[in-house]
Amino acid sequence: MPIALENVSYTYAPGTPWEHVALSEVTVRIEDGDFLGIVGPTGSGKSTLVQHMNGLLFPSDGRVVVDGDEVGSDRKALRDLRRKVGMVFQYPEHQLFEETVWADIAFGPKNLDLDEEEIARRVRWASESVGLPEDILERSPFELSGGQMRRVAIAGVLAMQGSVLILDEPTSGLDPRGRASLVEQLRALNQAGMTMVMVSHSMEDMALLVNRIVVLSEGRVALAGTKREVFTQLEALETLSLDVPRVTQVMLRLRGEGVPVPLDVMTVNEGIDALAAALRGEKDHASQ
């Protein structure tokens, strides 16, 4: 189910003193199975952009096409769209409301009018996908830790079993271990065929997860391409005051010291390999 945003512009509160252009002429295309990352400074329009993907906002100008159909205000079509495109907002744990974790995760499937058995199956699947232990399901979501609440909220969206999942800053505020396991679980979901879109400030998460990146700046697409293409455009990223992954920074410093390492290194393992290759090369050179 490809999602295409074509020349999308969005203005908040048009015609009032608070008028604010959040997006201008943004074109983004998401293919099936993609893992798209969206980065940009605060206020660059990332959250506004992703809300167009499941019809929570409609473009002031331009159009959004999902699976060949233009997103409009038809209520039935919108329901269908929101069921196919799941959306995890920033701090999703703030949307929990049910008495038990089970009931909260089941809220979405229940709105789809599924039978009890299917709902139970989906709640189990969703809570396993985010690593929630079985005994938590009967507890109140309000007595859990922040990290567990986050998982419950994400499971609540997963239980809709859409084919696309949008996540706005899913790892912010988690401790390092919680972050690492969530990243793993998101990767697994994507490998199982789910199309993913992630907004994040964390370049490390981007390096580990996504394959393509769109960089937004003041509501416009500043850079776009594969993760390697984007993370090697260091000057452009610097002018937008965005970082590159730490491993890439290390490679950059090594380059500066005269060690011949490649720059398109994103993860720790790639970094180790690149460094080993470079050191081996140097040794060969020395022994000649």
Binding site: M87, F97, G156
Partner: peptide, 28 residues
Amino acid sequence: KAQMARGADFQSGGFIQRAKNMVPLLVP
């Protein structure tokens, strides 16, 4: 918006149904 993304409906239904539908908004 978050609850709408999970299929919540804040617009349709009778008065009582609509009041009930507000629970997922009001509790959080």
